[in-house]
Computed example of a mutant assay.
Amino acid sequence: MSIIIKFFIAPDDTSAASSVDSGPDGVFNSLDCGNFDASEAVLEWESLFTGQSFEALVASDEPRTVAEHEEGDGPLLFVVSEVLQGALTTASPARLAEVGELWIQERAVEGDAFDPEMVGELLRDLAGLARTAHGQGHGLYCWMA
């Protein structure tokens, strides 16, 4: 599980990858998150938004890794799929709340407990970041360390 998670926007994979060792702070507009497996979460969120199965998303190699620490045991950087970025960009507050509630229920089955207020704020802030990225023609990325 990650200790530090930062979603951020960048113009392209090459630009995003430049922050793999140090993180996106001070370089890119970013959102700091709590302690959860972000690579699994984006798949779960995309599944909840689209109805596509988690397994199908994994089979399609989502999320796509953009960069890793040289030794493979350090930070990881991946891009959020265009489908999820689009879903976040267009989601209404009610839809974000619905997906948040469903995600909390899914994670509870696995023994994880998430605060509904924290999840609601996370998805609202992430949707705002996705809208900013879309408006700039940029992608949405995640850095985990």
Rank of each mutant, 00 (worst) to 15 (best):
V20T: 08
V66T: 00
L126C: 01
G74Q: 04
Q105G: 11
E46Y: 14
G72M: 03
L122W: 15
A59W: 05
S19F: 03
L96P: 08
A56P: 06
A16M: 02
L76N: 04
G111K: 01
Q105M: 09
G86K: 02
D13R: 13
F78N: 02
V80K: 01
S60F: 09
T14A: 14
A17R: 09
A59V: 10
G100E: 04
M144W: 00
D25T: 05
G34Q: 08
S81Q: 12
A17Y: 04
A94N: 11
R124E: 07
A94R: 13
E55Q: 14
G74L: 07
P93Y: 04
Q52K: 15
F49T: 01
H69I: 05
Q85W: 01
L57D: 10
V80C: 06
G135S: 13
A133M: 07
E44V: 03
K6F: 02
L31V: 10
L57Q: 11
G139F: 08
A16Y: 04
L84T: 00
L123D: 03
Q136T: 07
L48H: 05
E62W: 10
Y141N: 01
V58C: 06
D115S: 06
P75Y: 04
G26Q: 05
G120Y: 03
D12W: 01
D73F: 08
M1V: 10
C142V: 00
P11D: 15
V79E: 12
F36G: 10
S30C: 08
G23K: 12
A145K: 02
G34R: 05
A91Y: 02
S47W: 06
E106V: 13
R124P: 02
A87Q: 14
V42L: 04
G26T: 01
D115E: 08
F49V: 00
F114P: 05
D25V: 06
E110I: 01
R107H: 02
M118N: 12
A127N: 04
T65K: 11
Q85P: 07
F114Y: 12
V99L: 06
W45I: 09
G74Y: 05
L122H: 10
S18V: 03
Q52A: 15
A91G: 08
F49I: 01
G137Q: 11
S47H: 07
T14L: 08
S30F: 03
W143S: 15
T14V: 13
F36Q: 13
E121H: 15
T14R: 10
S18E: 14
P75M: 03
L123W: 00
E68Q: 06
N29H: 01
L76G: 14
L43W: 10
A133H: 01
A91M: 05
L31T: 08
V27K: 11
D61Y: 13
S2E: 13
D125I: 00
D21I: 04
E46M: 02
T65R: 09
E82V: 15
R95M: 08
L76Y: 05
E117R: 07
I9P: 01
E106D: 12
L48F: 02
A127W: 00
V80D: 05
A17W: 03
L129P: 15
P93S: 11
N29A: 11
L84S: 15
S81H: 10
G137M: 10
E62D: 11
R64A: 14
Y141F: 06
C142E: 14
S18L: 05
V20Q: 03
E46F: 13
G135H: 12
R95K: 14
A130Q: 04
C33I: 03
L57G: 15
E55K: 15
